[in-house]
């Protein structure tokens, strides 16, 4: 197990390195620079600024400097907000984004699995049709459309929930609902089909033949097997939620990491782009690793530590 974790850790570092490199060169391909603005700056001032941030150096030198900043975990000050360092922006934004993301995933998982299980148990019944209609709608409607709809109906027209910002539990409802609906729908559909298949298995019949109660059969024997495909796509869903937070944070004016990320790109604030990207990718890679571990715990047939195995 320790060997497997070490191996995976090396892979993770390589992955983050590749993402960081790609981001760096893509970012430099973008036209414009932090100091390209409508009002013209004095040429000498401009040069001084570029020299200060090493933007006048050759690209390779910039790249090495940037790699150094990753290794030392110090991304330096933001160009556009000189009073802030990238680290302080991350430190402020991450807890908020994490709160949004964790609630989203939790709610999507719990409601999605519950919806899927009930749909499977009432297969071809009214509950099944209602659940699957909700699921199809959830998959089809993009989160930014849902977000604006929710704001318009619940916040503006009915006025029951606040429209934006992130300060109290009421403020959290709309963004979380908007972000969680899509993943919930995917999980519900997957759980349903996987549950239906599991329920026809011989070991379920065997469990019934043992005289176990229906609740025990479903929870102990069926659900654990039925959740396997759900765990498999959890990694992809996490990535989806993560990118979803960019949009949702922007719509709801939530001061999370996504906001800094998007603003950073718009303003060509290089250190902010790099810092947030590296942070996001490291976080996602770590989550994927945890998903794999969970997979091994759920299904004993998957041996994580096996030499050369998956």
């Amino acid at each position: 197990m320790a060997k497997y974790i070490l191996k995976r850790f090396i892979y993770m570092i390589v992955t983050v390195f590749i993402i960081a490199t790609l981001t760096f060169f893509l970012m430099n391909l973008l036209p414009g620079s932090p100091f390209n603005e409508e009002r013209t700056t004095n040429e000498a001032v401009q040069r001084n600024l570029e020299a200060h941030y090493h933007l006048d150096e050759p690209l390779v030198v910039q790249y090495v400097l940037y790699l150094k900043s990753i290794v030392t975990l110090d991304f330096g000050p933001s160009i556009k907000q000189p009073t802030e360092t990238v680290n302080s922006l991350l430190g402020r934004g991450f807890p908020i984004s994490a709160e949004l993301g964790i609630w989203t995933i939790l709610i999507a998982l719990i409601s999605g699995v519950a919806l899927g299980v009930f749909a499977a148990l009432k297969h071809n019944g009214v509950i099944d049709y209602i659940a699957m209609t909700i699921a199809v709608l959830g998959i089809s409607i993009p989160n930014f459309v849902l977000a604006t709809l929710l704001i318009q109906q619940l916040a503006v027209n009915l006025g029951v929930l606040p429209a934006a910002t992130w300060s109290s539990p009421q403020h959290m409802v709309l963004p979380i609902v908007a972000l969680a609906t899509g993943p919930m729908a995917i999980i519900a559909r997957l759980t349903r089909s996987s549950m239906l298949e599991t329920l026809t298995q011989d070991y379920i019949k065997m469990a019934r033949a043992k005289g176990l109660s229906p609740a025990k059969i479903i929870v102990k024997h069926a659900l654990k097997n039925a959740l396997m495909p759900v765990v498999t796509i959890l990694g992809t869903l996490l990535a989806g939620v993560l990118t979803g937070t960019f949009v949702i944070e922007k719509i709801f004016a939530i001061p999370g990491m996504g906001k800094y990320f998007v603003e950073g790109i718009n303003q060509r604030d290089y250190p902010v782009i790099m810092g947030t990207t590296v942070f996001y990718s490291a976080f996602l890679v770590l989550m994927l690793f945890l998903v794999d571990i969970a997979y091994g715990i759920l299904d004993p047939r998957i041996k994580l530590h096996k030499e050369g195995g998956k």
Binding site: Y203, K220, P300
Partner: peptide, 24 residues
């Protein structure tokens, strides 16, 4: 359910699928 597994038991055809793969 009180009779199943207690008074009457059943053995199925395929032992490869009759056991739950995720439980000891």
């Amino acid at each position: 359910r009180k009779i199943r597994g207690v008074d009457i038991s059943m053995i199925f055809q395929d032992p490869m699928t009759a056991l739950n793969p995720t439980l000891t």
